[in-house]
Design a binder for these strands. Structure first.
Length: 275
DNA sequence: ACGAGCGCCTGTCGGC
DNA sequence: TGCCGACAGGCGCTCG
């Protein structure tokens, strides 16, 4: 489900509070349940429960698509993968059928990791580098510069879309925002990364950042049967718009498969790479 | 180094 | 109505 903007939206909600949920900062975990063992990568579920109880939540952070609950003695890494979500619920609310991990907090609420497809994962670690150490730069940070981006594009001979989806190349891009950014930059998803000119690279750099910021501003996207409050889905230019006219040129949006992922683009604005 | 195929899972939707 | 395939916001693995 979530890409960088959706995870960032959840981070801000947990950290700052909002809607009907309070900030989690300084709340204490007083109980824990693991409903689906494989969700917890490490440590083993029983040890996870032992260790996480009595921990205080010091901060809520994010790295790429990883949500990080900074606890007094550990870091709780959460990756929502395709269908995961974090809900804050009152204690008397019954557990839904897709609840996988639940943390009981003081103040009478619980933090629930809900995940129909069971792809999501959590780790309780002191040292996080083993899991997130190889991630590429944060696209909205200062270390992500036009110059370094262009250089690194040219260090690879890869289709641009799968390269942007590679979390060790750039952290946080997923299928939606990649399609949107490539359309914005007028670059075909199959163009080889080392055929991208400096001018195209600069445009793509700008588009990645503006599209992600637009997603965050709209609290992310809510698609399929999962509604989580964001409304960026109303602003998609190409994603899931096969057959609809391109908002720039009017030509029908096409869908192809690239790297096993549905890929949406405008054949007029994003012409095929020269063979 | 790169890309394709597959596994992990459950749910929805469209076509017949 | 039921069945069946396509498809879904991700990623790790193996194999050429």
């Amino acid at each position: 489900m979530p890409e960088l903007p959706e995870v960032e939206t959840i981070r801000r909600l947990l950290r700052n509070g909002g809607l009907n949920s309070p900030s989690l900062i300084n709340m204490k975990i007083i109980g824990a349940e693991v409903l689906w063992d494989r969700t917890v990568v490490e440590p083993a579920a029983s040890i996870f429960i032992d260790k996480v109880i009595n921990q205080t939540i010091k901060d809520v952070d994010r790295r790429g698509k990883f949500l990080i609950l900074v606890l007094a003695d550990y870091n709780l890494l959460i990756h929502l993968r395709m269908s995961g979500d974090i809900l804050i619920e009152s204690l008397d609310e019954p557990l839904g059928k897709h609840h996988r991990v639940v943390l009981i907090l003081d103040e009478g609420i619980k933090l629930a990791f809900v995940d129909p497809r069971k792809f999501g994962r959590v780790w309780l670690l002191t040292e996080t580098s083993r899991v997130i150490g190889a991630l590429g730069p944060e696209p909205l940070s200062d270390e992500f510069t036009r110059g370094s981006f262009f250089q690194r594009l040219n260090n690879h001979h890869r289709q641009i879309k799968p390269l942007l989806l590679d979390q060790n190349f750039l952290a946080g891009m997923g299928n939606i925002y990649t399609d949107e950014a490539l359309h914005c930059a007028k670059i075909h998803p199959l163009l080889k990364s080392d055929q991208i000119t400096r001018k195209q690279s600069d445009r793509l750099w700008e588009c990645i950042r503006s599209i992600l910021l637009e997603g965050i501003k709209n609290n992310g996207a809510s698609i399929d049967w999962v509604y989580r409050g964001g409304d960026y889905q109303n602003y998609f230019r190409v994603y899931q718009r096969r057959g609809e006219p391109c908002q720039v040129c009017g030509v029908d949006i096409e869908r192809i498969v690239v790297g096993q992922r549905g890929t949406h683009f405008c054949p007029e604005c994003q012409p095929l790479p020269s063979k």
